[in-house]
Computed example of a mutant assay.
Amino acid sequence: MTGTALQVEALVQRGAFRLDATFRIEAGETLAVMGPSGAGKSTLLGVIAGLVPLTSGTIRVAERVVDAAPTPRTHVSAAQRGVVLLGQDPHLFPHLSAHDNITFGPRARGVERRAADADADEWLWRVGLAGLGARHPAQLSGGQQQRVAIARALVTKPAAVLLDEPLTSLDAETAGDIRALIREQLTSTGTTAIVATHDAVDAVSLASRLVVLEGGIITQWGPVRHVLAEPATRFAAAVAGLNRVDGHAADGEWVSGELRVEASVAGDAAAIFPPSAVHIDGVDASTWTGALRLDSAPTGRGVWLARVVRLEPTPAGIRVRTTDPDVAVDVTADRAAELGLTNGMPVRLRVDAAAVRIVRA
């Protein structure tokens, strides 16, 4: 099986929302699409799959135009364009066994029963469900149902597979297993794929390139490593587990709010650094105005006063969100308790200069 190149030039206007995205995926490549809720990820996949109409633009599958608007209008139906969409819900036929769910696609395309049965048996083995083909969806776990859905998607040898957050509803261990399965099968079959996800692990594990979609437009795209190492927006930085703070550099110093660091660039620029590089201490005041009165002298480069805006749990402790500027700080739970961190509390932050990269905006 050989993947197929996709060329997307999509403009979709749906009420107040506008999607405007242009990119190309090479044959056999997996592209990750990340963005906040409402950014247009599902709309984009729906356009490529033929489920959402174009306002204007062109969709090409292997250089074949399957969608074009406004004139001349072309629209190849979802069933005829060779693109499979797999979402969070596997959408298995409840009245069919796992085996018959997999044979449904080939049989609908005219494959004779014996060959379809043989393909289904092979795919049940490939996805780790050998011996479970007679079970119906209600007799399978969520992870097993997703495995059947993957087999059903790939057995028809599609031109491309679109994965719309297929791991979101699974627990972490099951999601890890399914993620490894998807990578293995996409690689072995050479299937072109787009993975829409909220999880950077999906992008790193499955894709070679990453598109960041925000507010219906592409704000950054490139190799996954490059996008995560030098995020162009605060959202992309959050996905990469980094702080990105926009500011201005002049006379060897970059400034944003109360934060100042040494800089070798000039003009609009951003500071990028991990939350783990920021140290947090309490101040001898319970209010912001009180902290300012006690700390009216300059704090120096890399040291500033901030306010806690919220606390978020992390696997290793607590992420403290602060402002001004907006910076995340990672601390252990016992350190947070020691400081008595609460929303609105003034704190002193210090960032290691060696951990800060200043990049042009």
Rank of each mutant, 00 (worst) to 15 (best):
Q145Y: 01
Q145M: 02
Q145E: 02
R147K: 05
I150T: 13
A151R: 02
A151T: 02
R152V: 05
A153H: 00
V155H: 12
K157L: 08
P158H: 12
A159K: 04
A159L: 00
A159C: 01
A159G: 07
V161P: 05
L163T: 04
L163G: 09
D164G: 13
D164T: 13
D164Q: 14
E165T: 07
E165V: 11
P166M: 08
L167E: 04
T168L: 15
S169I: 06
L170D: 12
L170S: 13
A172I: 04
E173P: 00
G176C: 15
D177V: 08
I178S: 09
A180V: 08
R183S: 02
E184V: 07
E184G: 13
L186I: 03
L186K: 01
L186N: 01
S188W: 03
T191F: 01
T192C: 04
T192E: 02
T192S: 14
A193F: 03
A193K: 08
I194T: 02
I194H: 05
I194C: 03
V195I: 15
V195F: 14
T197H: 15
T197A: 14
D199E: 13
A200Y: 00
A200H: 06
V201Q: 09
V201K: 05
A203M: 02
A203S: 00
S205Q: 08
L206F: 08
A207C: 04
S208L: 02
L210V: 08
L213E: 09
I218P: 03
I218L: 07
G222A: 11
G222S: 11
V224D: 11
R225F: 01
